[in-house]
Design a protein around this nucleic acid. Structure first.
Length: 483
RNA sequence: GGCCCCAUCGUCUAGCGGUUAGGACAUCACUCUUUCAAGGUGGAGACACGGGUUCGAUUCCCGUUGGGGCCGCCA
């Protein structure tokens, strides 16, 4: 089933919060490592916190991985379904004297801990339950007192080699006898994680540095349980602009929020891959195949990285720009429908036309949702006229010129870019005015904007009737207001 | 308060003892263009500090400072 040399990694998210950029990158690096080494990528949901875990969060994890294309080879396993396995190992630890029952009340300990921290004192469990006399223990048992299980931390330092951070030491005095089994019979993170990583044959534990203080605890469990140890690699964190760990207050909560804004999954993957890792050359836009080929843990930068959305947007724009018109249309469809630019039924009928619109605005989109502002006027009539643009180009003189030219427009039978340009150039030559004096007002009258794709193509795509209607309407409005 | 991790332009990074410290985003010029964008060209912009080691440190070691993380019967 499992080859001895096979690389096996896992993504082990907890469904207590959104699947965000940080989790996504951890997943990506695990996935890249597995794919690079022809290994296995396993999905394991760490839902041992019953109160806070939810179906919704599990769904965001699945959605996020799916959106990024990070397919898994095994799982999803759910820790909540593996309780018997953990209990077996906990019992083993108790039997061998590596763990003991703790009858303390969580509230009492929490109070003590808070008080200590408030006084800037460090606090560690004092093993009071380990030191209970046999009589005291019997009494607790007789009273059916709730009990948790604590791991008895041995008095020798823990040293391990991290693939990114090199050697890491931790003194036993700095590790308290941590709980491995709660009063409710459900194991805690460290126990479940260590047991599962062993049981699932994980060869490389790749996770965020916030777990680096857990690793010595898990190593102690490995040793007590006589498990062979995996390799460890602790990834740097992704920080918000405030240099703090990414969290809800940084706006983009779920990874799926980026999908909704119109980021392309390929761009997201490319960007995330480069946030903390570099291929060693100057290439930034890379296909997933290329990233897999070049990926290595050795080239991960140990320093935390600040998330820069501007670079993500740039990269996304690059991906959009490099798409074919057909690909762009596919990606854009949900947005066109969401913004009510078009009905699903029209999508097919107007396909050729939409493809041309896609080609026209491709260079102008950073995220797909930009179509709302940048391309609205192609699709619907309720677009906005930019005040600045009107101020600049909506005047008596320009109106006269546009009026005159629109009469010529009406006579153009083949209303395409080339013909529009031809008649416009002829018109301005005859009038002896610079082309821009007509081009700019014309654009503003028909699109409400100062910028956009080439005017002649724009007019063609909007179509003769709609162009003339818009021109009439804006002029009428102006004249009503200004006598 | 304790422990741990980290340190090159504003941001992401290359560098693995000798480089005019390279690239990308952002920024600023110029250019192309009917406009905006995209593109092209160029500019400004960094080795946190102090000690060592060395003929020579951005690079190796130590310390300081700064930043981050953890200290839950959360993960």
């Amino acid at each position: 089933m499992k080859k001895d040399s096979e690389i096996r990694v896992r993504m082990a998210p907890s469904p207590t919060g959104f699947f965000h950029l940080g989790s996504a990158r951890t997943a990506l690096y695990n996935w890249l490592f597995a794919r690079h080494n022809q290994g296995k990528f396993i999905l394991r949901v760490e839902d041992t916190d019953v109160q806070r875990s939810s179906k919704e969060m599990i769904q965001t994890i699945l959605d996020g991985l799916g959106w990024l294309g990070l397919n898994w080879d095994e799982g999803p396993y759910f820790q909540s379904e593996r309780l018997a396995i953990y209990k077996k190992y906990v019992q083993q630890l108790i039997d061998k004297g590596y763990a003991y029952y703790c009858y303390c009340r969580p509230e009492d300990l929490a109070r003590e801990r808070e008080a200590a921290l408030k006084n800037k004192q460090s606090w560690k469990y004092d093993r009071r339950c380990l030191n209970l006399t046999p009589e005291q223990k019997k009494e607790k048992e007789r009273a059916n007192h709730p009990k948790a299980v604590r791991f008895l931390v041995p008095d020798h330092p823990v040293v391990f080699y991290d693939l990114i951070h090199k050697e890491i030491k931790r003194d036993f005095a700095d590790i308290e006898d941590f709980i491995i089994l709660r009063q409710n019979g459900i194991p805690t993170y460290n126990l479940a994680c260590a047991v599962d990583d062993y049981e699932m044959g994980i060869t490389h534990v790749i996770r965020a540095v916030e777990h680096i203080t857990n690793t010595p605890k898990q190593i102690l469990l490995y040793e007590a349980l006589n498990f062979s140890k995996p390799e460890f690699a602790h990834l740097p964190l992704i920080l918000g602009e405030d240099r703090k760990k990414l969290s809800k207050r940084h706006g983009a909560v779920s990874l799926m929020a980026y999908k909704e804004k119109g980021f392309i999954p390929e761009a997201m993957v490319n960007f995330l891959a480069l946030l903390g890792w570099s291929p060693g050359n100057d290439k930034e836009i890379m296909s997933i195949k290329e990233i897999i080929q070049r990926f290595s843990l050795k080239r991960i930068n140990p320093a935390n990285a600040i998330f820069d959305i501007q670079k993500l947007e740039w990269m996304n724009g690059q991906y959009i720009y490099r798409m074919s018109d057909g690909e762009l249309l596919e990606s854009l469809k949900p947005f066109l429908i969401k913004f009510k630019f078009i009905t699903p039924a029209e999508l097919d009928k107007k396909r050729e036309w939409i493809l041309r619109v896609c080609g026209a605005i491709k260079k102008r989109l950073k995220v797909l949702a930009d179509i709302d502002k940048a391309g609205r006027y192609f699709f619907v009539e309720d677009f906005e006229y930019e005040p600045r643009a009107l101020e600049k180009h909506l005047h008596k003189e320009t109106i006269e010129i546009v009026k005159e030219f629109s009469r010529i427009m009406e006579t153009i039978t083949d209303f395409d870019g080339a013909h529009i340009e031809e008649s416009l150039r002829g018109f301005v030559k005859e009038k002896n005015i610079p082309a821009r004096n007509l081009i700019h007002p014309l654009r503003v009258f028909t699109t409400g904007k100062e910028g956009g794709p080439g005017l002649f193509l724009t007019l063609e795509l909007i179509g003769k009737e709609r162009c003339l209607k818009r021109i009439k309407k804006i002029i009428k409005n102006y004249e009503e207001k200004n006598g």
